Simulated scan of single mutants.
Amino acid sequence: MLVRSLRKSPLVLLFLALCAFLGWHKSGYSLVPAASKSDAVSSNKGPKTPRIAVVTFITDEKSYVHLSLKNKDHYARRHGYDFVVDYEAHTDRGTTYWKFNMMERLIKTNKWDWIWWVDFDTLITNTDIKVADIIEETLRNATVPDDIDYLTTHDCNGLNTGSFLVRGHERSIKFLHDIYTISDHAKKTTEHGLSEQDSMAKIIADDKASGARTMQVPQWKLNAFPKEIACFDKSEQVWEPGMFVIHFAGAWAHVKGEDPTGQLMTKYKDEIIWGDWKNFYE
């Protein structure tokens, strides 16, 4: 009798179907397929990608301004990093000290986890490589990774500040101020003062806290030199195709010509692994 009455009453069937749906939904089941639900959970796993600023400055005309800017801007766009350039330097300590002023200014914004300083006379020759991966790989060797604030490289003369990383933390501001103090003291007590590189090296060497927060990255990995500038760290590794960065430090002392750095920039620009610009310009 019930079956016959239901067949004759479509409204009753619709009512029962609606009740069944509401009861099933209330019981906690989701209309999202199981695979999609799982994917949503897994997407939240894994290490957080650090916020990185690629930083440099150029204060005068050079033959390679466009190439250097294009290269670093392309790299930053490709990996979602920020690219910061200053075109003026206002410091009474010497122009090269402006890199520390820039870093302090950027750290205070609290926008970035790491600041990558890279000199203007450099080319990122393999834009496939993420500097975030270099940070991660280096910190794996630290006892307490969160305590490491400075990743530096050396050449044949010791510390080289052409390419190094500073954590975007208030501790780093104190470190920069200590460098200023060393610089100002040297300026008062010596005839020529200290370069920004020598001041930073002195702080790392003399201050135990700063030294403990510093890790050295192999030169070839973050700041490689070409064969024309044979001033390598203890690895004695010359730049090779496929390496991350090439730095033409002190080209004027190693290469003859009116524009040594420009000549090397032109020579090595065809070695750059760019990646497809369409992936991040469109």
Rank of each mutant, 00 (worst) to 15 (best):
Y64T: 07
R140Q: 14
I148V: 11
N157M: 14
G168E: 02
H66E: 15
G94C: 10
V166M: 13
D60M: 09
V41N: 03
Y87T: 14
I124C: 06
V131E: 09
R167V: 06
F164E: 02
H177R: 15
E104R: 09
E136I: 03
G94A: 12
D149H: 15
D149Y: 15
D92S: 15
K37F: 03
A53W: 01
I115E: 02
V84D: 01
T181E: 14
T143Q: 11
D133V: 05
R78D: 02
A40E: 15
V84S: 02
I182H: 02
D119K: 10
N126Q: 06
Y64H: 11
D60G: 14
D155N: 13
K72S: 01
L69K: 07
N160E: 07
T152I: 15
T109F: 01
Y150T: 11
K37N: 12
A132Y: 06
D39H: 08
T125I: 11
A40I: 12
V55N: 06
Y97D: 00
H74I: 02
S38D: 11
A35L: 13
V166Y: 03
S63P: 06
D86F: 11
I182Y: 07
D73F: 06
M102K: 10
K62E: 06
T49D: 14
G162I: 06
F83P: 03
D39M: 13
I124D: 04
S42N: 06
